[in-house]
């Protein structure tokens, strides 16, 4: 039996909603089949007021062993480093976060806000929000660079806005079933099993990407969304086209560009106004090229690919 406690900071509850939609395994499977005991969760917990405070304190004292501490949302530090803007169970949430992280075997940050600060940490960051162990790209965040949970692992980051439900439940099951040793994390402490490949891996529009046939409007049944509609699939690490959303489809399959929500820069507030869904170009060449590709190579390759594109690539395809 693994005790799990889930708290929310500066959050919209999106990751909770996503988690409750999990299917493989489902949130119920976690309890019935995988021995996860949910001590408390903002949407599922029964305790209120002093009872909840007592539960949190018993985790901190060690009377109730805390195996997995899940945090959703940013850690709010305003005003003046006090964290008073986000009070919970009688004190600033950040104080609970610090003390619970210190006693937990594993700490899991869910969603962009908990991992990198996300939308609340966008400049000018009025709530002085931080991610658990990162602030955007910068290592450290709220808990600091040296933080490690009792298991020895740093915060396990599962980014996304929100993160896919199965990424959450599969990691929780791995941890609860003693297979955390199999987890390897990348430079942003994301499990490599999910975040080594790109959103583009498995996208049904890859042939259009290769032949440089562009979609020019949302939802078109042909064309790649990179060239005109700002798709960040070739530079975003996520398994969105391997582990499908609702087990059916993905944003790019349905004709919507990937916004790069698993990367620390999301939501890319340095984009020029009006360019969220528009590929930014400099002298006609995309400003952000696919990871590992340089401008000269890109221009040569796309010119050649375009010349070789077959007729079918210009016609509607079933891409759902």
């Amino acid at each position: 039996m693994a005790n799990l406690l889930w708290l929310q900071g500066g959050a919209c509850s999106g990751n909770t909603m996503s988690f409750l939609n999990a299917e493989e395994p489902s949130a119920c499977d976690l309890v019935t089949d995988f021995g996860i005991n949910i001590l408390w969760h903002p949407s599922l917990g029964m305790e209120l007021g002093d009872n909840l405070k007592g539960l949190l304190q018993s985790c901190i004292s060690g009377a109730t062993p805390l195996d997995i501490f899940v945090f959703e949302g940013s850690v709010v530090n305003a005003p003046d480093g006090t964290g008073e803007w986000n009070r919970f169970a009688g004190r600033p949430m950040k104080d609970w976060v610090r003390e619970l992280s210190d006693v937990a075997q594993f700490v899991v940050a869910l969603g962009d806000c908990a991992t990198y600060g996300g939308i609340p940490a966008m400049a000018p960051n009025p709530s002085a929000s931080k991610g658990m162990q990162f602030l955007k790209r910068e290592h450290g965040g709220f808990l600091g660079t040296d933080f490690a949970a009792k298991s020895g692992l740093p915060v396990i980051n599962i980014p996304g806005c929100p993160c896919h439900p199965d990424w959450v439940t599969q990691i929780l099951v791995a941890v609860a079933s003693g297979r955390a040793g199999d987890l390897t994390l990348d430079e942003f402490q994301r499990p490599k099993t999910f975040f080594s490949s790109f959103t583009q891996t498995g996208c049904t529009r890859n042939m259009h990407f290769a032949y440089k046939v562009s979609a020019t409007e949302f939802g078109q049944r042909k064309g790649c969304l990179f060239y005109d509609l700002g798709c960040r699939g070739p530079m975003t690490h996520s398994p969105c086209n391997r582990i499908l959303w609702n087990r059916q489809s993905s944003k790019t399959r349905a004709g919507m560009p990937c916004l790069g929500c698993t990367e620390p820069e999301f939501p890319f507030f340095d984009l020029e106004p009006g360019t969220l869904f528009k590929t930014q170009t400099v002298m006609g060449v995309p400003k952000d090229l696919p990871t590992g590709v340089d401008k000269t190579g890109y221009v040569k390759l796309t010119g050649a690919a375009k010349a070789a594109s077959p007729q079918w690539a210009e016609e509607d395809m079933f891409v759902v």
């Binding site: 046939v213 562009s214 060239y227 005109d228 002298m283 060449v285 796309t302 010119g303 375009k306 210009e314």
Partner: peptide
Amino acid sequence: SHEGLEQACETCMYYLVHR
């Protein structure tokens, strides 16, 4: 030709080669 790149419809991403 602009800034070292030859800008022809042929290589433009809005161009449909066959049509």
